[in-house]
Structure formats: C-alpha cells, structure tokens
Amino acid sequence: MRFEHSAPVRAAFPGLVAGVLVATGITPDVSAGPRVAAFTGQARTRLSAGSEAGFPEIQAWRRAFAAMGVKPTQYRCAAEALLRRLRIDGNLPRLHPLVDLCNAVSVAYAVPVAALDLDRITGDLTVRHAHGDEEYLTFAGGVERPEPGEIVFADAAGRAHARRWTNRQSGWSAVRAETSRVLVVVEGLHSTADADVTDLLDTLRTEVAVLWSPPAAHALLTGARPAFEVPSVALPPQEVRRSPPAPGGGSRERSRPASR
C-alpha cells in the first residue's frame, strides 16, 4: 500500500509538508491521560495569548480552504476545530487512547493529525481531488458523495476516508477498540511546516513507543519525496526498508477520531 498526495494537490499547495507514521499492536487498554493532559496544557497556554484564528498554522489552512472554494469559518480544518473546542469547552472528548493522544498533540502544535485504521483501507490511499463518485461514510452511518474537485483521502475501492482535506474523517476507517494497525498522517502548510511537522512526528514516535511499541515505519513527505510505502508486515524500526529513489530524484517512503 502506498500513501501519497497527488501531483495536482502538490502543485496547488507547493508548501505542503506531511509526516506519516505506521503503528502496530495498538490497543485501547493503556493510560494516555497524563500525556494527553501535558499536550493539552501546552495548547491552553498558547490560547491564553489569543484565539486559534490568529495562529499562523491555522491561517495557512484557512487560505488553503478558501483556495479550494470552501468557506473556512464554516468548514474548519481539524486542528482549528479542536482548538476552538478546547477554548470554548475547556477540554477535548476522550475517544480512544491513540485518538486522544493524536488530538492532544494536534492542538499543542496547531497542526492537523489524523489516525486511520489500516485494515479498513483498500489498496493505495491518495490525497486527491474527488471525482464525485466516491463514497464517504458518516459517523451516523449515512453515505455521502464528495463534491467533484473537493480534496479527499481516497482509496482504491473508491472510498473517501476524509472530506474537505482535513475537515471530516470517515467513520469507515476511524480508530476503534478493535483497531490494531494505524496510519497516522500529519500535514502542515505554514512557513515553518518543515521543522514543525518533523518535530511533531518525532513527538508522536516517542509517545507511541512509550504507550505501545516503537512505530513500524515513518517518513517526512515533501514535493521531492511525495510517497510512502506502507510495510505489509510490521518490521522492527532498524529494519524499515526504503524503496529506490522515485523518478526525478525523490525517494518513496511511503475524529471523528484523531482530528479529522
């Protein structure tokens, strides 16, 4: 399985930086509370100086949503929606230890983080413009069709695993109690996204290793390295293989849980 952003998406948003991580052996019976509290506390500290709407990370996503023809105050990116909820309600919902961790790290960095059940994804997963015939399963069990041109996470079976890019994750691949293998996706568009996404990815790797086991694979994706090959079998971190360089010099590595 490969995860990547399509060439048209990359062309439209050349500043996009993404981090991906594969975690295995995920279970719901761990205590993530102290770590969730620590990251949420970081977000509260930042919010005390001003609302999330003024954060450069959020402003970059608002510009992207406007460029997609989506009203950014009607459909907020995942990180903004979580930060807004934290500011108004004072806390975030508890859903699953991994989801709670991803949400807490997301608000700490003001960067969208999504966790998807790998066993619920068919074939390659591509962030691309929708054709309009994809199926999106809501958390209520209804089926929607994304608007043509809308940016979605689409798999080989024609399922949309997220709508409006980082706005709404599908109920189909959301992390649940029986989830064992997870693909975590982190995406930034702001000017310091390269450093921030790298730092966030390192943070998640550390936290997942403490609570479960070291991630099976991870990678930072940019225009020069746009794809990530998900290992079919979990490998110890020192044995994660990387595919040969892609044409053009790049290499291929390959919520509402998580924050979608």
Results as ranks from 00 to 15, higher is better:
117 D>H: 10
178 E>N: 13
14 P>Q: 05
48 S>K: 04
156 A>W: 01
95 L>V: 02
151 I>H: 03
76 R>D: 10
33 G>C: 04
215 P>T: 05
2 R>H: 05
105 V>E: 02
70 V>R: 01
78 A>C: 03
193 A>C: 03
256 R>H: 13
242 R>Y: 08
3 F>E: 06
254 R>C: 07
200 L>H: 04
104 A>N: 07
27 T>V: 13
207 E>W: 09
28 P>I: 11
157 A>N: 06
226 P>M: 07
162 A>F: 13
83 L>S: 02
29 D>E: 15
12 A>N: 06
121 I>N: 02
82 L>H: 13
37 A>P: 07
95 L>C: 06
201 L>G: 02
254 R>G: 06
37 A>E: 14
93 P>M: 04
214 P>A: 15
139 F>K: 08
238 Q>A: 15
7 A>M: 04
42 Q>E: 11
155 D>S: 08
31 S>G: 04
151 I>W: 05
222 T>S: 00
191 S>G: 05
24 T>D: 15
158 G>H: 00
228 F>G: 01
123 G>H: 12
4 E>A: 00
214 P>Y: 15
240 V>H: 14
154 A>V: 03
47 L>G: 01
177 A>W: 09
49 A>C: 07
236 P>S: 13
156 A>T: 11
84 R>A: 09
238 Q>M: 08
68 M>E: 15
56 P>I: 01
36 V>C: 05
200 L>F: 01
90 G>A: 04
19 G>E: 01
115 A>K: 00
71 K>Y: 10
169 Q>T: 00
154 A>D: 04
39 F>I: 00
233 V>W: 10
254 R>L: 13
56 P>M: 03
216 A>T: 15
256 R>F: 08
226 P>W: 00
141 G>W: 11
244 P>F: 03
105 V>L: 02
72 P>A: 11
123 G>F: 13
15 G>W: 00
124 D>C: 06
81 A>Y: 11
82 L>T: 06
10 R>E: 13
